[in-house]
Simulated assay, not measured.
Amino acid sequence: MDKDHERARWKVGWAVPARAAGGTARAAALSVDERREIARKAVKARWAKHLPQATHEGVIRFGDIEVEVAVLGDGQRLVTQNGFMVGLGRIRTGKGHRYFRARTNLPGFLTVQNLKPFVTEDLAALASQIEFRTKQGLKTFGYAANFLPKVCELFERAQHAGVLKDNQRNIAKCARTIAEQLRRSGTMRLIDEATGYRDLGKQMCGCLAALSDF
């Protein structure tokens, strides 16, 4: 009996659809490592579905500097990790926890010895990455909106203290440009304008105020 005939008889005898049988055969041909990797990706995909998702996305421009931002479904404003890194003049973009040091949530470039005295409790509390999905469904990372101005303040203080190294001066320059505009316009307002987000709560308050005039 040839192999094709035997395979067809097996599928009919066990009432297994041809497509399912084919999938079973392919799975059986995979190595243990290949099956483990497929299972890992499936779990990761299911887990990612439960992450908060951005409903609005945009870019804030600070002169030649561009910072990617987003607003989640619950109204939380974020600076994307990529926007944070590139906006401060970091050539490499962030890759999740790879850029973090042990026992701290701070990005690695903020944990160097000469900057440690300028890391406040407020800044450290805002440093935790927030995992979310983009509007396209891709998993990525971000920071609370107030983290960016806090980091800018850190570099301003370090520069005034005269402790910056040569490779930190470009970051300080970017931070100064960003900080000046954030102080003028406010971080939340700039994110809302860049993303086109309108807080429903504010809209309701405006409508109620208008109605009270009648």
Rank of each mutant, 00 (worst) to 15 (best):
I65P: 04
A42V: 04
Q81E: 14
A48V: 12
E37I: 01
A127W: 11
D122S: 12
T134W: 07
G83V: 00
H97L: 07
F109Q: 02
L88Q: 03
R133T: 13
F109G: 01
G137A: 09
V79F: 08
F100K: 06
R92F: 07
F118Y: 15
R36G: 11
R46V: 11
F84T: 00
K116I: 13
R92Q: 09
P117I: 02
H97F: 10
L138T: 08
E57G: 02
R19S: 12
G73F: 10
G96I: 04
S128Q: 15
A39Q: 02
T111A: 12
N114H: 14
F62R: 02
D64H: 10
N105Q: 11
A29C: 00
G75T: 03
K41F: 13
Q53S: 04
F118D: 08
L115Y: 05
V112T: 15
I60Y: 05
M85F: 13
R19C: 05
Y99W: 15
N114T: 09
L123E: 06
L88I: 04
V86E: 09
A27Q: 05
L123Y: 08
P107D: 04
A39N: 01
F62Y: 09
I130G: 00
R40N: 02
M85N: 02
R35Q: 12
A127K: 07
K135A: 15
L123H: 06
T134E: 07
A15V: 05
I130D: 03
T111N: 08
E37V: 01
A54T: 01
R36N: 15
D33W: 05
A18I: 11
A39P: 00
L88P: 04
R101T: 15
K139R: 12
R98N: 07
A39H: 01
Q136N: 07
E37G: 01
V71C: 09
A20K: 09
V119A: 12
V79I: 14
E34I: 05
T80W: 06
Q113Y: 13
R40P: 00
M85C: 02
A20Q: 09
G63F: 12
K41P: 03
R19H: 14
F62Q: 02
P107I: 06
T104S: 10
E57F: 07
T80Y: 05
A102P: 11
R35E: 10
T111Q: 11
A39E: 06
L126F: 13
F100I: 14
G75Y: 07
R35M: 11
T111I: 06
M85P: 00
V67T: 10
V16C: 05
A127P: 09
G22W: 10
F118H: 11
E121T: 06
E131G: 04
V79C: 09
A124P: 08
W14L: 15
L72T: 10
V112S: 13
A70H: 03
